[in-house]
């Protein structure tokens, strides 16, 4: 019992404590008055929010970026696992896996630093490769139209191998007799992948999908904050980076707390909705709870 109390205090302070601070979204927070002493203003900050053009840009960027990540970065590890599963050589399989896990353990500081370096128009390797095809080097990090692609591509690269572990394990769990009988029935590789492998890992895919929505909208903050620069604000500035910049650096606590609360609520609705949908689709078999 005493043990539990010890942990409970940690969760209560650091996970539920911030929820108390959320009330400043409905107050006009002044540092001297503290959280409780500041005057209530009701929904004023939210009204301001919906009238502010910045908000729609942030919302659009956040939703678009997360949408692209969902359709490109989410399936990527599944495809890698399916490809790895077709490899006969154990050594090659192990080699590819061991290399592809590495970026997962490298911090976003290092990853982003290297991305900026490799994409540089003067010393970058990408400029060199593009040069082989006769294209002019471009300052990729300074072009707003490239920002989302860079985020998505680097997010894929970082967690491609790591994310594939769970699908690869699910694929190894398939009964080999199923494959053999399919071969006898004359199914080719493509048909076997489509009819056996993919349906077999669908429950795992469903769970990973819901889990990935858990951090939806707040994921990739570490990545974006390192790659963002004022030139790319138009396409790359998301709710979190804006809250950090305007809230903490320009001290507009209440206003940005309101944006943060809005984001948290949307995220909560999304994950509850996704769980419900997955459960409906699988008739109550899948889903987290």
């Amino acid at each position: 019992m005493a043990l539990f109390l010890f942990s409970f205090v940690f969760f209560f302070i650091f996970k539920y404590g911030p929820l108390y601070g959320v009330i400043i979204a409905f107050k006009d927070f002044r540092v001297v008055d503290g959280i409780w002493g500041s005057p209530w203003v009701g929904l004023q900050h939210f009204q301001e929010l919906f009238q502010n053009g910045d908000f729609y840009r942030l919302l659009k960027n956040t939703l678009l970026l997360n949408f692209y990540l969902l359709i490109f970065a989410f399936p990527a590890p599944i495809i890698l696992a399916l490809l790895l599963n077709e490899v006969r050589s154990r050594f090659f399989q192990k080699f590819v896996q061991t290399t592809m896990y590495l970026p997962h353990f490298v911090s976003w500081v290092i990853m982003s630093g290297l991305i900026i370096y490799f994409l540089s128009p003067t010393t970058g390797v990408v400029a060199e490769i593009v040069g082989w095809f006769g294209a002019e080097p471009v300052f990729y990090m300074g072009k707003k139209e490239y920002f989302r692609s860079i985020i998505v591509a680097s997010a894929i690269l970082k967690d491609l191998g790591w994310g594939s572990i769970i699908y690869f394990a699910a694929l190894s769990g398939i009964n080999p007799e199923m494959q053999e009988s399919a071969i006898i029935d004359g199914a080719n590789r493509w048909q076997r992948i489509l009819r056996i492998n993919i349906p077999s890992i669908m429950p795992t895919v469903a769970i990973m999908f819901i889990l990935s929505l858990g951090g939806f909208l707040s994921a990739n903050f570490e990545q974006i904050i390192n790659l963002l620069n004022p030139v790319t604000y138009e396409t790359g500035d998301v709710i979190d980076t804006y809250v950090y910049r305007v809230g903490l650096q320009q001290f507009q606590y209440s206003y940005t707390a309101a944006i943060g609360l809005f984001k948290s609520l949307v995220g909560l609705l999304l994950i509850l909705g996704a769980n419900l949908t997955v459960r409906k689709l699988s008739r109550g078999e899948n889903g987290l709870w």
């Binding site: 969760f11 302070i13 650091f14 996970k15 539920y16 404590g17 911030p18 929820l19 108390y20 601070g21 959320v22 400043i24 959280i35 858990g214 707040s218 979190d240 809250v243 950090y244 809230g247 903490l248 606590y253 940005t256 707390a257 943060g260 609360l261 984001k263 948290s264 995220g267 909560l268 994950i271 509850l272 709870w289």
Partner: peptide, 23 residues
Amino acid sequence: LLLLFTMIFDGGIVPNYLLMKEL
């Protein structure tokens, strides 16, 4: 359930900052 809730909802950057300040 209270544990699960902390996984899917967080107060946000500013409330967390104020909490660290208070502490």
